[in-house]
């Protein structure tokens, strides 16, 4: 199981009068078969934290460790937009991020395409697929490298409600089947409550305001009373920390 240790993580952009603090002294421990959602208003540093975790950005100060059984863990990433290569087929997009391109790897990619219901679309170009299908390819790509930990940055925010709901269910099944650690950024509190067993609430200035455990059975439905109560409870925290106004 992957373990993530974040100590005194600080990130600033710009200098002097233009300086913006994106993350302020963040301390966190995450790991195991857990689905962690990071919520907060726009500009609270959610995506910056994910970018630092995945190595796209470097922190200004502080330390970060992502390990798997004492070794450096391999992360996977699902982005807000699928970020596929339009000139490569769906299968080639999955193979692009693999260390080796053997038949075994190809079979593994095919397995994950089938998990996202796109087993027959391997030879299509991304432009031939709908937005929801492209995002599914993005999810299959991230799972296909069999990462120890998976980072997801608002992956369903561009999709219509029905497609997003269906993908959330698929994602949850894959998380349950594969036992991965998933760190999921979202601005949708309902989505966070439906998917996660832990919710981190961030505020403007990149402060970690609260760390909430959602102790409800899966699968969850937004229409369930318990889920609605949990969502209301998280929203109350937003009010408490004055996050709704921002």
């Amino acid at each position: 199981m992957a373990e993530i240790k974040i100590r005194n993580l600080h990130k600033e952009f710009g200098t002097g009068a233009d300086k913006v603090v994106a993350l302020e002294d963040v301390n966190l421990d995450m790991g195991g078969h857990v689905f962690v959602s990071i919520v907060g208003p726009s500009g609270c540093g959610k995506s910056t934290l994910l970018n630092i975790l995945s190595g796209i950005e470097t922190p200004t100060s502080g330390s970060l460790e992502i390990t798997q059984s004492g070794h450096k863990a391999a992360p996977g990433y699902v982005f807000q937009a699928a970020r596929l290569l339009p000139w490569r087929t769906v299968m080639d997009n999955l193979l692009f991020v693999q260390q080796d391109k053997s038949d075994e790897t190809r079979a593994r990619c095919q397995k994950y395409l089938e998990m996202v219901q796109l087993g027959d679309k391997g030879d299509k170009f991304p432009g031939e697929l709908s937005g929801g299908m492209q995002q599914r390819v993005g999810i299959a790509r991230a799972f296909s490298i069999e990462p120890d930990v998976l980072f997801m940055d608002e992956p369903f925010s561009h999709l219509d409600a029905i497609t997003a709901r269906s993908l959330r269910r698929e994602l949850h099944t894959m998380w349950a089947d594969t036992g991965k650690t998933i760190i999921f950024v979202t601005h949708d509190v309902g989505e966070a409550v439906e998917l996660s067993n832990r919710i981190l609430v961030f505020a403007q200035g990149g402060r970690l305001e609260d760390d909430i455990t959602v102790d409800l059975d899966f699968p969850r439905d937004a229409a369930d009373e318990e889920v609605a109560i949990a969502k209301a409870s998280v929203l109350r925290k937003f009010e408490e920390f004055d996050l709704l106004a921002t």
């Binding site: 995945s54 796209i56 992360p75 982005f79 970020r83 692009f96 991020v97 490298i145 980072f151």
Partner: peptide, 16 residues
């Protein structure tokens, strides 16, 4: 840039 960031996040080497 987004696609290049994606490749970096997946540790794709510079040549690829």
């Amino acid at each position: 840039k987004d696609t290049l960031d994606m490749a970096r996040a997946f540790k794709v080497n510079l040549v690829d």
